[in-house]
Simulated assay, not measured.
Amino acid sequence: MIRIHVDYQYNGFIWNADDWNELRCHHRIVGNLVGTRSSAAKNAKVLALPCQLLPEEVTLLVKLNICKLVKMKQEPWSDLKEKYDSYKEEIMKEQDVAFKKGKEKKIYKMIDNIVKNKEASAKNGENIDRNQILQEELAKLEPLSADHILVQRFLEDPWQENEELDSRLWTYPVSRRDKLKYSIFKDLWSRKYFITNGTKFGGDYLVYCGDPSKFHAQFIVICKDQKDTFQASELAMYSRIGTNVKKTVVIASCDTAGQVIYQSLSWADLVT
């Protein structure tokens, strides 16, 4: 089962690339990539895992039994530091052994030439001991310096341990507004749409007919309680936004029976 990592503020994250791909391809859950690639750390536009999920997405996935909630176990800093220092020392020893083996191979390949050079420069037929020369050359090898140690860049915590959370601890939706948004999100998802956060266009959701990597959003959905009122200026603003970005603005609400109702707005309708 796919694991959603929940932090202490109850934000849900997907850290595993295969899980993220499965949610997107098989369950139409997009989320929002909030990390950066280690190879492009200076380029903020190149996003990577983790993927932060909307609270509506987390609730839906847990209720459908597609995902389970987990939380990272917290270890004392002193224990983590001890683990890291021990691991670093082990890596340095392994690299030093590999470095010496590489140097030894080169010496063994060159030993005949070294002996010949020694014999050529020897005085009065001095006897050259090949084995002694070999040992002298090997003795010259120095440990690998700290400046030449390869540093491993961790992409995730190698000692991370998770504990499964009771799904009842995830309390969203709580408020009337949250319940309204969740009902609308669930209804749109059940209609086979892809859904993302719509705040950048002044709405609650952006709705796509296919994967957002291949399609532009078709609808800007604004969630409104049936008892909410609109100012004429608000209607004009929403309609003009939709016209400018070539998307249909949809006002979504729930009736007394909990049925989701959709009403579309267009600038042409308002000015005629």
Rank of each mutant, 00 (worst) to 15 (best):
V221F: 05
V46S: 01
K63V: 13
T171R: 09
T196W: 07
Y87V: 12
V46R: 01
V249L: 09
K227S: 07
D255M: 08
K103C: 03
Q231D: 15
R176A: 08
G202R: 01
D19A: 04
S167K: 10
G125K: 03
D129L: 15
Q231C: 12
E82D: 10
H27P: 02
G258M: 13
K68E: 12
L80T: 12
N16S: 00
D269I: 11
S78K: 11
L265S: 05
N124S: 05
L141P: 11
A236S: 10
C209L: 15
R153D: 03
V245W: 02
L180A: 15
A44N: 00
K93E: 15
K246E: 09
E22A: 02
Y108N: 09
K186A: 11
F201Q: 12
L165S: 01
K45G: 07
F99Y: 13
R153C: 01
S175C: 10
A17P: 08
L180N: 15
L155P: 06
G198P: 05
K116L: 04
W189Q: 03
K42R: 06
K200S: 02
I222M: 10
K116N: 05
D211C: 09
I14M: 05
E234G: 09
T36N: 00
S38T: 04
V6H: 14
V46Q: 03
D96L: 04
Y193E: 08
L180M: 15
A98K: 01
Y205E: 02
S190Q: 04
Y87P: 06
L150K: 15
S183F: 04
I149C: 13
L141D: 15
G198Q: 14
V58S: 03
A98Q: 05
Y193G: 03
M110Y: 11
H27N: 08
Y84G: 05
S86W: 08
D228V: 00
Y108W: 09
V249W: 02
D79R: 13
L47G: 00
G198F: 13
A146T: 11
L53Y: 06
A44K: 03
L69M: 10
R24N: 00
N113I: 14
P158F: 05
A40V: 14
